[in-house]
Simulated scan of single mutants.
Amino acid sequence: MTAIYRSAAGAAAVRDRYDTLLDRWPVPSGRRTVRTRLGATFAVVSGPVDAPPVVALQGSGGTAAHWLPDIATLAGRLRVYAVDAPGEPGRTAEARPPLTSPAYAEWLDDVLDALELPRAAFLGTSLGGWWALDHALRRPARVTALALVNPAGIGRRRIAPLLKFAGYRLFGAWGRRRSLAMVAKGSPADPGRRAVGEFTFATFEHFKPRLEAIPVVPVERLRTLAMPTQAHFGAHDVLLDQRDAAAKLREAVPHADVRLAEDAGHFLPGWAGSVVTFLEGERS
C-alpha cells in the first residue's frame, strides 16, 4: 500500500490538528470506527436517532471536520454520519483503490451494513460528491436521496489551478493563503469555514493527494438516476466547470433540483438549509 503522507511526523501532525477540530464539534455527537473490506472506517455521528439517516462524504484532502460550519444545521433535523473516506486524511484506513473500480461502492455497502442502515440518503461534496454519485449509480436500491454540493465527476475539471497550487506550495504560509483565497472565492469569511479551509490546505504540506483523474460520468449514466436529487454548484468554482455540470445534470435528470450560485466558488456557502428541507422530505 502506498503511503499517503510524506512522513510519519507529518501524519501525526495532521491527525493532532484534526482531533483539535473535532473537539470543536458544536452539537452532541458520537464517534464510530467500523470494519470494512478496505479497513477501519471512522465516522462522527450527530442528530436525532429517529431522524432520516444521511451519509456525508467530504472531498479530496478533507475529513469529517469539513462539515463543522454546517453540522448544527444538518444535525438539527437529520441523523448525519460524517465519514472519513479511505485514502484521505483523517482516521480511516489509507487504502486507495482505483476510482474506476467498484471498490468504493463495496466499501460504502460495508459502512451502511456496519451502521445498520439498509438505506440512507447521501450528501457529498467535491470528490465526496463523486463517491456519493457512484454509489447511487451502482446501488440505487440503497440510496433514498442524493444531495450534491459542487460534486466532481459531472462537469469538466480545470487543470490550470492545480498547477498554481503546486507552485504556491513552495511559498509556505503565503502560498497556502493564496491557494485558500482562490478556492474560497465567494465564500463568507466566518471563523468556522476559515478554520476548516486553513486546516485543509495545511494538510497538503504532509499529505500526498490523489493524482488519478476523476472519472466523468457520461450523460447516459446520469439519466439512470431515479432517486430524488438536489445539486448545488458554484459558478466561480476554480477547480471544476460547474456551469457545464449544472447544464449537464439538468438535461440528464429533469426531476433534479439543480441550483447554480452565480457568486460562489468551490467552498459553496448557503446550501445546508435547502439540503435539510430536501432530505427531510425524502424519508424512506
Results as ranks from 00 to 15, higher is better:
residue 113 D to Y: 10
residue 27 V to H: 07
residue 244 D to P: 11
residue 119 R to G: 04
residue 102 P to R: 09
residue 4 I to E: 02
residue 62 G to L: 05
residue 33 T to L: 03
residue 25 W to N: 09
residue 181 A to Q: 14
residue 35 R to L: 03
residue 24 R to L: 10
residue 159 I to N: 12
residue 213 A to P: 11
residue 65 A to S: 15
residue 100 T to G: 15
residue 99 L to T: 01
residue 9 A to Y: 02
residue 155 G to M: 02
residue 36 T to V: 02
residue 258 V to T: 00
residue 280 E to I: 00
residue 276 V to F: 05
residue 228 P to Q: 10
residue 159 I to D: 14
residue 31 R to D: 00
residue 184 A to F: 14
residue 59 G to N: 07
residue 26 P to V: 02
residue 273 G to V: 14
residue 11 A to E: 11
residue 90 G to L: 01
residue 146 L to A: 03
residue 228 P to A: 12
residue 239 L to R: 02
residue 282 E to L: 09
residue 230 Q to S: 03
residue 270 G to H: 05
residue 92 T to L: 03
residue 201 F to M: 01
residue 236 H to C: 08
residue 190 D to I: 12
residue 74 L to Y: 08
residue 152 A to C: 08
residue 198 E to M: 03
residue 162 L to V: 08
residue 259 R to V: 15
residue 1 M to N: 14
residue 15 R to N: 08
residue 272 A to R: 02
residue 179 S to V: 01
residue 263 D to E: 13
residue 94 E to M: 14
residue 154 I to T: 11
residue 182 M to I: 10
residue 56 A to T: 02
residue 112 L to V: 05
residue 62 G to E: 15
residue 119 R to E: 10
residue 196 V to D: 06
residue 83 V to H: 07
residue 220 E to T: 14
residue 172 G to T: 09
residue 148 L to K: 05
residue 119 R to V: 13
residue 98 P to M: 03
residue 199 F to P: 02
residue 215 P to A: 04
residue 158 R to T: 03
residue 163 L to D: 05
residue 158 R to N: 12
residue 209 P to E: 04
residue 185 K to M: 05
residue 119 R to Y: 05
residue 39 G to I: 09
residue 21 L to Q: 05
residue 137 L to E: 11
residue 16 D to N: 14
residue 166 A to S: 11
residue 236 H to Y: 01
residue 281 G to A: 15
residue 163 L to P: 03
residue 88 E to S: 14
residue 54 V to A: 08
residue 74 L to S: 05
residue 274 S to P: 09
residue 215 P to K: 04
residue 125 T to F: 12
residue 141 A to V: 02
residue 133 L to T: 15
residue 106 E to W: 09
residue 166 A to G: 12
